[in-house]
């Protein structure tokens, strides 16, 4: 009986949290207009969310592309199909690894920082203080961060995939001797703009939305103690990872399922 009672309690807790999260998202989106009036708020957040994530994204993209080049070459050369290396690297990056790995890195780098920042602001009464100064903390603090996360994600994914493709080319034709022309032409002939690039872009938008939402809500919903903030930060990374991978499966099934 204890087990079911526990399960019921957990379920109820999960649902109320989802409800709070939905309201939170609603108020966050309601504040969008304030960004139009004050673009500087957004610009500052683009810096801490986007620019500061650039380095880790670029380096990871380079290495992922290089590894794909190596692994792909060894597998493809067994079939005498080294020329399709470009296709393999680009398809894996553009469809899957670009959006998913960038989003996971983004959750670890920017998402956890956002949660900790908002959580600490709550713990040190900064949000409450703002409210007492008649400033809506959601509009002033949350919305700009949300928009910055949502906009940064596709840019970071673009950076990641582009650098990855170049990294694959570096290893493939630079070290392993795949013909450079074949690398690019096989890629161009088979990567479709709408099916692959646009779908990857949509994925990145969805991931940016979900990671920013989770990170900010966890921060806002923190128990205002140092333990609470640390738990919330962990939850951000874990829940983001689950959501990214689960949504990736659903999106892939929807996008690439037909053909």
């Amino acid at each position: 009986m204890d087990f079911f009672q526990h399960l019921g309690k957990e379920t109820r807790g999960g649902f109320t949290k989802l409800g709070r999260g939905t309201f939170f998202l609603f108020y966050t989106l309601k504040g969008l207009f304030s960004i139009v009036v004050r673009p500087r708020l957004l610009l500052n957040q683009m810096y801490s969310v986007g620019v500061l994530s650039c380095l880790i994204i670029a380096i990871s993209g380079l290495f992922v592309g290089m590894v794909l080049g190596l692994q792909g070459y060894y597998i493809l050369s067994d079939f005498g199909a080294e020329e399709t290396l470009g296709l393999m690297v680009a398809a894996s990056l553009v469809r899957e690894l670009g959006p998913v790995v960038s989003a996971l890195l983004f959750a670890g780098r920017a998402g956890s920082a956002l949660t900790a920042e908002i959580g600490l602001m709550k713990a040190t009464e900064q949000l409450s203080g703002m409210e007492m100064m008649a400033v809506d903390p959601i509009k002033r603090i949350i919305t700009p961060r949300f928009v910055a996360g949502f906009l940064s994600m596709p840019l970071l994914v673009g950076l990641f995939s582009a650098i990855g493709v170049l990294g694959g080319q570096m290893v493939g034709s630079g070290m392993l001797g795949v013909d450079e022309g074949a690398y690019w032409s096989q890629m161009q002939a088979n990567i479709d703009f709408y099916d692959d690039i646009v779908n990857g872009f949509i994925k990145s938008l969805v991931f940016g939305f979900i990671v920013s939402w989770i990170a900010l809500f966890e921060g806002y919903d923190t128990v205002p103690t140092s333990e609470g903030v640390s738990r919330a930060t962990t939850r951000t990374v874990v829940n983001s990872a689950f959501s990214i991978l689960g949504l990736d499966f659903i999106l892939t099934a929807l996008m690439f399922g037909d053909d």
């Binding site: 600490l120 040190t124 009464e125 900064q126 203080g129 007492m132």
Partner: peptide, 9 residues
């Protein structure tokens, strides 16, 4: 005036 000051850090 909050107990902690609640300055924006």
């Amino acid at each position: 005036l909050f107990q902690s000051g609640a300055l924006l850090t």
